[in-house]
Design a protein around this nucleic acid. Sequence first.
DNA 1: CTGAAAGCGCTAACAC
DNA 2: GTGTTAGCGCTTTCAG
Lengths: 335, 335
Amino acid sequence: MASTIDDVARAAGVSTSTVSYVLSGKRPISAPTRQRVERAIRDLGYRPHAGARALASSRTNVLALMAPLRVDVNVSVIMQFVTGVVTAARTYDHDVLLLTADEIAGMERVATGSMVDALVMMDIEADDPRVPVLARLSQPAVLIGLPRDPEGLSCVDLDFDAAGRLAVRHLTRLGHRQVALVGSPRAVLERHTSYAERMIRGFTQATSDAGVEGIVEPCESSMVGAVDAIDRVLARQPDVTALVVHNEVALPWVLAALRERGRRVPDDVSVLAVCPPDVAVGQPLPLTSIDIPAHTIGTVAVEMAMARVEKSAPAETRLLTPQLVERASTVPPAR
Amino acid sequence: MASTIDDVARAAGVSTSTVSYVLSGKRPISAPTRQRVERAIRDLGYRPHAGARALASSRTNVLALMAPLRVDVNVSVIMQFVTGVVTAARTYDHDVLLLTADEIAGMERVATGSMVDALVMMDIEADDPRVPVLARLSQPAVLIGLPRDPEGLSCVDLDFDAAGRLAVRHLTRLGHRQVALVGSPRAVLERHTSYAERMIRGFTQATSDAGVEGIVEPCESSMVGAVDAIDRVLARQPDVTALVVHNEVALPWVLAALRERGRRVPDDVSVLAVCPPDVAVGQPLPLTSIDIPAHTIGTVAVEMAMARVEKSAPAETRLLTPQLVERASTVPPAR
DNA sequence: CTGAAAGCGCTAACAC
DNA sequence: GTGTTAGCGCTTTCAG
C-alpha cells in the first residue's frame, strides 16, 4: 500500500516511464516487460496517485455534475439522471463530483481549481445565469435542458416540443377534441424551466394546428395542488375527454382527484402521462405514457462531455425523439 | 486565469511560501503583505490547482459518498441524506465525490488513489461486505447505519430501536392493545438492512414488554404491496386499532387501502408513520410521525468524518434519539 | 522497445 | 515576519 510508480519500476526492474506507459498504453511495450510490470503492480497493490497524475497530465478523470437536489420536484427522475451520469462516467474511467444547484459558485470553483475535466449541468432554465459562467470556463460543459442561448455549449434533452405534439397527435387520432395539459408547478414555470415551457409550446401549437380545444393548467406537486388543477380544468372545460399529465409527483393525486370528481379513467377521460415508464406502470391503471428517458439523457450528456474532452469534438445540441407507449389509460372518447 | 502561485508571488512582490501561507493561514502574515497578496490573487483570478495541492499536502478536500441510487427505495429520504452530506461538506471546504452502491470496488479505488480524505457510506447492512474493506483503508470512513460489527469504523443513524419502542409507547398510552407494524419491503429485510431490523426489534420488544398484541408485516413499496400488507394485517389481527408504518413509499397506498377496506383513520384505526416530516404532512390527513432526520444524519456523518481527518478524533457510534410529533392520525381506540 | 530527467503547482521544513 | 528550496508522484519529451 501507498506504493509509488518508482516502487513498481524498481520491483519490475524497469524505468518509471515504462511503468507509466504500460499503464497508459501510449507506447508499445514488449510482452515480457509488460507482464513483469503488471505483476509488480499487483503484488504491491499499486494505484496511481490521482493528484500527481492530474498535476502532470492536466486531466483529473473527474467530472462535475450539478444536480437540483430540491425535494419539491420529481425526485425519481433526478435520481435516474444522476445514475445515468455516474454509470456512464465510469465507463470513461471518470468519477463524479456532485454539486448542488444552490451552489452556483461551485462550478467555477471546481473548474478553475482544475478538479474536473468537464461539467454537466441539470435543470437548465431559459435564461440560466450559470450558462454565461460555464461558457467562460476552460473545461467543456454539457447542459441538460435548453437555454435560450447556449453560448456555444453542448445541450441534450428530450425534445419536449415534439413530446407535446406527439401527445396531442395520439389523442386527436383517438378522436378527442377537448384536451387539457396538466403541467408543472407554477414555481417551475416561473423559473422558465426549459422543459416545461417547451412541452406547453408543443402542446399548444399542436392543438391549435389540429383545430381542437386545448387548455393548459399548472399543477402543484401535492394532493391539494392536483385537486385544484383538476377542478380548474373541469371548470374551464367541463366536457374534457383527455388529459396530458406532465408532473410525476402529482400524477397519483390527479388520478385520485378524477375519481373523486366522478370521472372514470379511461371511460370518461383518457390520461396520457409524461414520465418515466416505471411510474406510468406503477399506477392503479397502467398509463399510456411518453417516456422521459432520464437515464439515457444522463448517459448522452456524459458521452458528449467526454467527446469534447478526449477528441475535442465540437459542441452540439441533441434532442431525443420522444416515444409513446400505449397502455390502458387512453381510449377513444365516449359516445 | 490559469495562473500559478508563483505568478501571484511575483505580482505581489513576495515569495511563493508567503502566498501559500496567506492562503492557509498557517503562519502569521503582516497586514500590508497579506493585503498585497490578496489583491494579486483577486487581480489574477488565481485559484490553487487541486491536484498540486493534494500532491504536496496529501489532503484532497474531497470526500466520497456512496449512496444507493436505486429507484425502489425511499428516494426522497436518500435525497435528504445526500443534501445533508453535500452542504455539510461545503462548510468544511470539501467537495463530494458520488459513488453508486453497485460499485463496491469504487471506494477502494478512490481511497487508494488518494482522491478523497474520507468516506461516507449509506445504507449499511448487518453483514455488509463493504465494512471490512473500508476498515483497511487509510482514510477514515463513516457508516450511516449499524453493521453487526463496525470493525472500528464510525457509525451514525437514527436510533431505530428506540423509535420502535417510542411508537409502541405512544400507542399504548393512548390505550391501544392491538397494534401492527407495516414495515420495509421483503427485499430490504432479506438484505438485513440495519434500520429495518432494528425498528422491528424495538417494536417487538416494546409490545411484548407492554403486554399488548403486536404483529409485524413487511410491505412492498407499491400499491399492490400496500394492499396486500393491509389485508394480511387485517387477516391476522381483525381488531387492530393502530398501525405503525415504516415505509414512506407505501404510505399513501396504505392509507388508501385502509379506506378501501372500510377503516377510517383515525376513528377506526390510528396510524403512526416513520418518515420525514414533509411526507407525514403531505398526506390527506396530517400524520403523527416519528421523524427520520435524514438531513441531520448526513450532516453528523460529515462532522464525524472531518473530526477524524482534522483532529484525528477516535471513532465512535452515534445514535440520534427519535422524536415523535403528534398530529391528527393517532387517537385513543374506539369504544 | 526502453531510460533519464525535466517539469506540473503546491506545501512545509529549514533558514534568517 | 519572510524567503529558499526540496520534495510530493506522475507524465512526457528527448535520447538512444
